[in-house]
Amino acid sequence: MAKTLRRHIIRMTAKAGSGHPGGSLSAVEILTALFFNHLRYDPRNPRWTDRDRFVLSKGHAAPLLYSALAEAGYFATEELLTLRQLDSRLQGHADMTATPGVELSTGSLGQGLSFGIGIAIAARLDRRDYRVYVLVGDGECEEGQVWEAAMAAAHFKVDNIVAIIDRNQQQIDGWTYEIMNSEPLDEKWRSFGWHVIEVNGHDPAQILAALEEAKTVKGKPTAIIAHTTKGKGVSFMENNLEFHGRAPTADEAEQALKELE
């Protein structure tokens, strides 16, 4: 499935001629684990009250989310090639008013976790057992709102929320440690009152084990720091900043798809 999602991401961004392949490819295993081995949902009823919620806070990874939603059955995979076209349901950044299965409109960074806390509190008020998963970029953690939310989630003791940090160490202008150093990231989350698990973000077994561990943590939220590689799976895209926000050309896409056979 991971390879299938990667192929979708390459095809759809190449067709659109724009988009964010790098940060989509880095989180492929995370979404594969969530959507095909962990989350409770019903694609025929996207607003099912008891569904687990997946919130894509790093909204530029929309190509990845759309690929996972299509493979999960929310809409046909053919629709993926309409990405970014006028009046397509697949907007440039995640849009909850446009796409079935998208929980929040994102793209302006730092906002998903706060929204997730609201959902987590609602679950508690309504005595429902669904869980909330929020994918946050590591560069995104530079936004102050992320830490307002980190403080609040621990304060309100919401243990039905998991923040997964896609630690690919790159942002648009360079390596995160050069642009705005956020290390030690694990200690930051721990000191804000979170249970922290670190995993290889490309190892499905480690991701799934962390998701299960998070279910057993009571009285505090869990942060999974997933160490990943931006552009993972395509040799010339890996750790190549250029592909944060540039789509592959037709030739590059062809080569990428060959590597992903």
Binding site: T49, E103, L104, G110, Q111, G112, L113, S114, F115, G116, I117, G118, I119, A120, I121, A122, A123, L125, D126, G144, Q145, E148, A149, M151, A152, H155, F156
Partner: peptide
């Protein structure tokens, strides 16, 4: 819920609660 001195986070929490039917 007193969200403390953090208006940005409060608006996000408000949205999440509303999206859950509140």
């Amino acid at each position: 819920f007193d969200c403390g001195i953090a208006e940005q986070n409060m608006m996000g929490i408000a949205a999440g609660l509303a999206a859950s039917g509140k």
